[in-house]
Amino acid sequence: MYVGENESAKYWLSIMNELKNRGVEDILIACVDGLSGFPQAIEAVYPQTEIQQCVIHQIRSSTKYVSYKEIKALMADLKLVYAAPTEETALAELDHFKETWDSKYPKIYKSWHEKWAVLATYFKYPLTVRRLIYTTNTVEGFNWQLRKVTKSRIILPSDDNRLKMLYLAMMDITKKVDWSQIRA
C-alpha cells in the first residue's frame, strides 16, 4: 500500500523503481487512468509492460460535452466499439461511429483514434478477463472506501496512525469482496 500527498507521473516513477528494487521483475499489463506521463513512468522501469488506458475514463472524457438529448444514442454507438468481440470489429465500429457522429462531435473520434494503441490492449485477452483489464473502476471503488474511512478523521497524531487505520480498513474491505466473481 502506498500513500502519497499528490499523484503525479514522478510519484509513480518512484513507486515503479521501488517495486523493481523490491524484486518485481516485470509487469504484464498496467491499467492507467489517463494521468499524463503515467504510461511513460511505467515503461521507463518496465519497458515490456502493456499499457491499457481505462476505457471508462475515456468514455467520461468523450461524453463530457455531449448534448443530453443525444447521449443515449451516442453511448449506444460507442458501446459497439469497446464491447466488440474483436479488435477488428471494434475498429470497424469506430469507423461507423466517425461516420455518424464526427460532424457534431469530431473530438470524440479523434481522441479514440489517437489513443487506440492504449485503449485496445484488452482485446489481446480472453473475454472473461477483459472487464478487469479495461477499467480502473475496481481500484477506484476500493480507494473511495478508504477515503470514507479517512474523511471523518481529519486529525490523526501521525502518518503512522493514518497508515495503520488504512491497513485495517483495507483488511475489512477485502473481507467483503466476493472473490468467486473475479476469475482469471
Score class of each variant (00 low, 15 high):
Phe97Met: 03
Arg22Cys: 10
Ile108Lys: 03
Ile27Pro: 00
Asp26Leu: 00
Lys72Leu: 12
Asp95Glu: 14
Ser61Lys: 12
Asp102Ile: 02
Ile27Val: 10
Val32Tyr: 06
Ile29Thr: 08
Leu35Ile: 04
Thr49Glu: 02
Tyr46Trp: 00
Ala76Arg: 11
Thr100Asp: 00
Glu87Phe: 00
Leu28Gln: 07
Glu87Asp: 10
Pro106Phe: 03
Gly37Trp: 09
His96Phe: 14
Tyr109Met: 01
Asp102Met: 08
Ile51Leu: 05
Ala41Lys: 00
Ile29Leu: 15
Tyr105Ile: 14
Arg60Trp: 10
Pro85Gly: 07
Val24Tyr: 04
Tyr109Leu: 03
Thr49Tyr: 00
Tyr46Glu: 00
Gln48Ser: 09
Ala84Thr: 08
Leu94Val: 06
Val81Asp: 07
Thr86Asn: 06
Glu43Asp: 10
Lys69Cys: 08
Lys20Ser: 11
Pro106Lys: 13
Thr89His: 08
Gln58Ile: 02
Lys98Ala: 09
Tyr46Ala: 00
Lys98Leu: 05
Ile42Pro: 03
Ile27Thr: 04
Lys20Gln: 07
Ala44Lys: 07
Tyr46Gln: 01
Asp26His: 10
Cys31Asp: 01
Tyr68Phe: 11
Ile42Arg: 01
Ser62Asn: 06
Tyr109His: 14
Ala41Gln: 01
Ala76Trp: 02
Gly37Asn: 07
Ile71Ser: 05
Ser61Met: 11
Gln48Lys: 14
Glu50Gln: 14
Glu93Tyr: 08
Ser61Ala: 13
Glu88Phe: 12
Cys54Ile: 06
Ile27Leu: 11
Glu70Leu: 14
Val24Asp: 01
His57Trp: 06
Glu99Ser: 15
Gln58His: 05
Phe38Gly: 12
Val81Asn: 11
Pro106Glu: 08
Thr89Met: 14
Gln58Gly: 09
Ala83Asp: 15
Ser36Trp: 07
Val55Phe: 10
Lys69Ile: 10
Gln48Val: 01
Lys69Gln: 15
Val24Cys: 12
Cys31Thr: 15
Lys69Gly: 02
Lys107Cys: 13
Tyr82Arg: 06
Leu19Ile: 08
Thr100Val: 11
Ile42Asp: 01
Phe97Cys: 02
Gln40Asp: 14
Gln48Phe: 10
Glu99Gly: 15
Glu99Phe: 10
Ala41His: 00
Tyr68Asn: 13
Val24Gly: 05
Ala83Pro: 04
Ser67Trp: 12
Lys104Gly: 14
Pro106Leu: 09
Lys79Gly: 15
Cys31Pro: 02
Ala90Pro: 02
Ile59Glu: 12
Gln53Trp: 02
Asp33Thr: 08
Ser36Pro: 01
Asp102Phe: 13
Thr49Leu: 02
Gly37Glu: 04
Glu50Ser: 05
His57Ser: 07
Ile71Ala: 03
Leu35Lys: 03
Leu78Arg: 11
Glu25Met: 09
His96Ser: 13
Ile51Gly: 00
Glu99Ala: 15
Leu28Trp: 09
Leu74Trp: 09
Lys72Met: 09
Leu94Cys: 11
Val45Pro: 03
Ala90Gln: 02
Ala76Val: 12
Glu87Thr: 01
Glu87Gly: 04
Tyr65Arg: 15
Leu91Ala: 06
Glu87Leu: 01
Pro39Ser: 03
Met75Asn: 07
Asp26Thr: 07
Thr63Met: 15
Pro39Phe: 04
Tyr109Ile: 04
Ser67Asn: 14
Gly37Asp: 05
Gln58Tyr: 08
Lys64Trp: 04
Ser62Val: 09
Tyr109Lys: 03
Phe38Val: 04
Met75Gly: 04
Lys79Tyr: 15
